[in-house]
Amino acid sequence: MFRIRFHGRGGQGMKTASRILGTAFFLEGYEVQDAPRYGAERRGAPIFAYIRADRKPINERGIIAGPDLVVVADDSLVPLPAAGVLQGIREPTVILLKSCESGATWRQRLNIKNPIVTLPETGEAEDSAELRYIGAACAGAAAGVLGIISRESLAQAIQEELGRLGEAVLAKNRANALASFDAIKKSAAVNVTEGGSIPAQPYKRPAWIDLPFEDARISAPVIHAGLTSVEVRTGLWRTMAPVIDYSLCRGCWWVCSTFCPDGVISVRDNQPVIDYDHCKGCLVCVAQCPSHAIAAVPEKEEQARKKAVAGEAS
């Protein structure tokens, strides 16, 4: 059975990707399961979807613990523990990354030996209108890596999944998917191997515990404090970062601070300061700043710049 997991951010079309690939498998005569995993988190937050495909009926269900192929639409998710991109990977698990950097670089960075295939980025993350096409490109690349899905099945699957969106959207998705499919076919020499089932003998015994009785002072669903949400680093959702040019900031009536939906801009020493741990990158501040002192910068560039500044400092 093939077990494939798609990782991306809300809004990048991972559900679409899993459906396209699922349909393509189906058209190739496979039994298929595909499903998105909905969490409570929203656009920009890490999400995933998954597919199982087999020649026999599939009894396994739920989240894929041990994937054969992991597809990542946004390489900024890889280092995030919350995204769980590398969860359950085995030695032969193939990782398909949308990234400007090479597989070798990533292998070194992550200190893993897995085959890593990269699909060059084309700047979609910076253009929210392009975001919705990432899914199809990922599905195309995944089909290419798998090597068992024909170009025709892929095109047909896209037609079935996206046909209702109109010819223009369909064409754009089809072109993206097929281009990724061809590019990967040409470059990648990896094999995705089907994983087996977990054997009944020997097996790892679950470490069950008798849940101890705890009275309601402890075991009621109550948070006995305020403001604990600051421990959630929603800054990880960001693909674009607002950056203040203090030479242009006129210290108005703090438009940015008032309008920021998340309240992450405070005013200190008469200057607005952005809390990047929590800024989700909506860019309302960029759009509203009366003196145009806030620019939208791709998160990656901003990360690199900060790293460089930190390097200089040390």
């Binding site: 309601a216 109550v222 404090a225 305020g226």
Partner: peptide, 13 residues
């Protein structure tokens, strides 16, 4: 006990 809504001890229930 520790259940209640008080200005001096916030809780989310």
């Amino acid at each position: 006990e520790n259940m209640g809504f008080r200005a001096s001890s916030p809780s989310s229930q």
